[in-house]
């Protein structure tokens, strides 16, 4: 049995007191324990940013990589050993900015990876610049006169890119977030879980109070999570009421399912001694 305490590390998170990242970490730990995953068979992969410290504070294997590249590193890990549970923790800068290209392609590939986007709509670690999800007009240190750009909507991007599991959590609701992480990890395919994660230091607009007044559970009403169009429509709802929960899920082959090379065993378990190259060499005669 994997218990919550097994996932605790000696190291203590360095996030600002009250940061939404604490709740995401707690939810991931709870999900791993609830699923009874062996910590030695889980790899948490991060890039750079506030979210990226997370692998250090959960007692599983971890890879703290470089800015925006958690997804390709995770892709390599998953393709090399698809027996591992691979969770990517990223942020709105890391995942939706510098690393966006990888995210789109990972979604259309349907690799069996869980992506958790710590979306605080601001660059925290670099001290308060605008982010791809900052609301239009948001005043930050890099947009003192207000952000001009339309923010990225990670959910509609995921739906358009062929993600097979698209959800939104809120750091202030760890019960729901844990449930979404469990469902997303169990989902066979790419799970995009965007998480509203208030930055208590830099984002004075999208605060816990802001979300508390607006979020509601989409799945508490009769919502059909296999209806792509309905999911598209509901994820645009970002005004006075903001839905959270599972927006869309569909079952299809994962990338690994479609690789005959992986049918018998993961790459890392295959025997690499005595590879016979004679027949190929003969073609050059």
């Amino acid at each position: 049995m994997t218990e919550l305490k097994d996932l605790n590390t000696k190291e203590i998170p360095t996030w600002c007191p009250g940061c939404g990242d604490f709740m995401i970490l707690a939810s991931i730990k709870k999900a791993v324990a609830d699923m009874n995953l062996n910590p030695s068979e889980v790899v948490v992969v991060s890039g750079i940013g506030c979210s990226a410290g997370l692998p250090h504070w959960i007692e599983t294997y971890g890879f703290h990589s470089i800015h925006g590249r958690a997804i390709p590193v995770a892709t390599g890990i998953k393709l090399a050993n698809h027996g591992l549970t691979v969770i990517v923790v990223s942020g709105d800068g890391d995942g939706y900015g510098i690393g966006l290209n990888h995210l789109i392609h990972a979604m259309r590939r349907n690799l069996d990876i869980t992506f958790i986007g710590h979306n605080n709509q601001i660059y925290g670690l670099t001290l308060g610049q605008t982010s791809p999800t900052s609301t239009q007009g948001a005043k930050t240190v890099s947009t003192p006169h207000g952000s001009i750009e339309t923010p990225i909507n990670p959910l509609s991007l995921g739906l358009a890119s062929g993600a097979t599991f698209v959800a939104r959590g809120y750091a202030g609701n760890t019960t729901q977030l844990t449930d979404l992480i469990v469902k997303g990890t169990k989902h066979r395919g790419f799970a995009l879980i965007d998480v509203f994660q208030p930055c208590v230091t830099w984002n004075k607009i999208n605060t816990f109070d802001f979300f508390k007044q607006r979020v509601y559970d989409l799945n508490s009403e009769k919502f059909n999570t296999s209806d792509l169009n309905a999911a598209f429509s509901r994820c645009q709802e970002l005004g006075e009421r903001i839905p959270t929960g599972l927006f869309y899920q569909t079952e299809t082959d994962t990338y690994s399912d479609d690789l005959p090379q992986l049918k018998e065993k993961p790459l890392v378990k295959q025997n690499i001694t005595n590879v016979d190259i004679k027949s190929v060499l003969n073609k050059y005669k």
Binding site: F63, S65, P72, V73, G76, I77, L79, N81, L267, V268
Partner: peptide, 12 residues
């Protein structure tokens, strides 16, 4: 490049 780092880390 990042994928082969992931692959190498995992042992392939």
């Amino acid at each position: 490049m990042n994928m082969i780092i992931g692959g190498g880390f995992a042992g392939a």
